[in-house]
Design a protein around this nucleic acid. Structure first.
Lengths: 375, 375
DNA sequence: CAGTGTTATGTTTACGTAAACATCCTCTGA
DNA sequence: TCAGAGGATGTTTACGTAAACATAACACTG
């Protein structure tokens, strides 16, 4: 569509490499080249020779350009098949100046949100013909982040999606070469980057309001780590809703997204008889919290109501099933890829934040406080 | 070490690109090349010109070869910094014939095991200077798998790690070019591929034996999907242990790894009063199972003992905390990368299976059956 | 002080692809 | 019958890097 090309269905689709299938996995160095293993992979020149055409014609067939005689095309395809030809992506990338690859920098795959987003990104990217290269950052220090970016720059990548708190990014960004596009998830830096994020505030409002509507006097909050913008946004919104409703926000409790930290927080909260409702910043912590509450004889939801955030598939099977804020990770991933590719294609590198809406899923972990009937 | 090189600390480490930092994100096409965005990125030739040396000397500095005069080296480094030079990975890959990238084909990131393994792979690979390219397969059909491999072949990848059931791989493999190395997780095809896997049988034996030792007459089994080798292996081992102990294996219950399927299975099992112990093929299903049992008034572990598999971080906070088989995903990932790289480097492409041991973690979801004290 | 290394650097070339340009046909229409 | 228009194909070249092969300068040795 975009040129004079036909973009026919992938010519290397299936059944290639049959010719050399029986070749043993030779580990010796071959004639030319530097100690590469196995029989050298066929190049366009090889195909061209076999088909009796020029390598340019092979290129044309390979890229699906119109204007190749049907007979010639068939001959070339046959030669490709016989030799098990595959385009060399390095040469292609070098020539075209693009890699058809999106890099994803993420800090951890331990949180469901990151994983689900990553999966959606990979799927969307694949649909667009892009591959996804993963760049894990072991420790969330600026040095590490900078190192990741440094590696990424030498990496074959057209755009970068960062699933991470940006303030770690701030100092590191300066080393980014100007042609690499960045999209960020979980950030408030919409003025500097393109940001795609879940509507943290909206989700939080729904969650907290739900608890207030049930009749709870106030709502406690188990927050995510301080350095997460998502966590911070949820905390801010929680405080705002309570203040607007004329309630006094109880002291903030700090977690780190992990189930374990939820458990620790739960042990604290179980002691407080005045705590009847908790908004937890993610489902994993909510699980730990429920565990602790249960262990200390505080029943959910009779004694304490709990609302989570994420709606991981497991949440429906917690004890009790968790009321939580559903995030559309798939959509976040899709939008990230779309934004990244729009940037790559130069179709308006608009900055700003795109918010993906959330939805409150009410299950069995929330109920009116005891004595609410008396009101 | 491996050559006459010094492999000095990365010359592009930090603070590069400062010169062109202020450049607006120009979206126009530049002079040469095809409509690339932004100021063309500096090449070796540019650096060489600025530093007053040949590009080969730049190459030597870039790759940390010894035998470059200290003064020259400094001049080159300064020029690199000023121009914000980054090696072009496509050209590098083309020249060297390798991409420094490992491809990972996986079917889903919904199961903790896959994710944890992937994360470990990415981390190990990064340490070895390799990037990881993710190739999600949407639907587990042979066509899809073949498509993934087809894409992968054109992708910049030196080796492939497959986290998937191999029988899907069987028919698809034929299209793999001979120089791409494959390592498989979760397979019994050790004769054809290099396989790294958790010691499914050992873990299962420990789990089932633990339940028998507690005094249960027999142990039920909630299995993973039929097409998973890991699931199949666990099922086989479960049956073997029971048979060896002279017990009759109860009918098999089929799940699909998901919490939801565990819940459905749990509803079935809750009805059977003769079921006092269940070995569940993964923790996520165990969560659903516990939920269903609880919902139907069957207490864990008083009425029914449950053992899971995986030891996900959440398992310690289930209600009750889950007794489960701990898998060392990190080690699996590391071994995969090591095997893949050994193949890439041609250091013995040994086939065969490497097993990573497991460990039974006893928590609160298992107990003797009621009336066991009467024995 | 010619001979022989050694060290530092430059020149040529090839990796595989695809854009740009150049041919060479075969029609069409006046 | 031939100019001209297209269609089909070939030739040249460049992408950025790095191996292989020069070369030049210098320090020793006997």
């Amino acid at each position: 569509m975009d040129m004079a090309r036909t973009r026919s269905s992938d010519p290397y689709g299936s059944g290639a490499a049959a010719a050399s299938a029986g070749t043993e996995g030779t580990t010796t160095a071959d004639g030319r080249g530097r100690s590469r293993r196995g029989p050298r992979t066929a190049s366009m020149a090889d195909v061209a020779r076999l088909a009796g055409v020029s390598s340019q014609t092979v290129s044309r067939v390979s890229n699906g350009y119109a204007g190749v005689n049907e007979e010639t095309r068939r001959a070339v395809l046959a030669a490709m098949k016989e030799l098990g030809y595959r385009p060399n992506s390095a040469a292609r990338a070098l020539k075209r100046g693009e890699f058809r690859t999106i890099g994803v920098i993420t800090f951890t795959l331990a949180t469901t949100g990151n994983v689900r987003t990553l999966e959606a990104i990979a799927t969307s990217a694949a649909q667009e013909g892009y591959a996804v290269t993963l760049l894990p950052v072991a420790v969330p220090t600026q040095d590490e982040v900078r190192g990741a970016f440094s590696r990424l720059e030498e990496l074959a990548v057209d755009a970068v999606i960062v699933i991470m708190e940006v303030h770690l990014l701030d100092a590191a960004t300066i080393t980014l070469p100007p042609h690499v596009q960045v999209v960020v998830v979980d950030s408030d830096a919409g003025d500097r980057y393109t940001v795609v994020d879940t509507d943290q505030a909206g989700g939080t409002r729904a969650a907290v309001q739900h608890l207030l509507d049930l009749g709870h006097d106030t709502v406690w909050h188990l927050a995510g780590p301080e350095d997460s913008f998502a966590a911070q946004r949820r905390t801010d919104a929680w405080r705002a809703v309570l203040t607007e409703a004329g309630r006094v926000p109880p002291p903030l409790i700090q977690g780190d997204w992990s189930t374990e930290s939820g458990y620790r927080a739960g042990r604290e909260l179980a002691r407080r008889q005045d705590c009847t409702a908790v908004f937890v910043a993610n489902d994993q912590m909510a699980l730990g919290l429920q565990h602790a509450l249960h262990e200390h004889g505080r029943r959910v939801p009779e004694d304490v109501s709990v609302v989570g955030f994420d709606d991981i598939p497991e949440a429906a099977h917690f004890s009790p099933p968790l009321t939580t804020v559903h995030q559309d990770f798939a959509k976040v991933g899709r939008l990230c890829v779309r934004a990244a590719l729009r940037k790559v294609r130069g179709e308006g590198a608009e900055r700003g934040t795109t918010l993906v809406p959330t939805r409150l899923v009410v299950r069995a972990s929330t109920a009116p406080p005891r004595g609410a009937g008396a009101r």
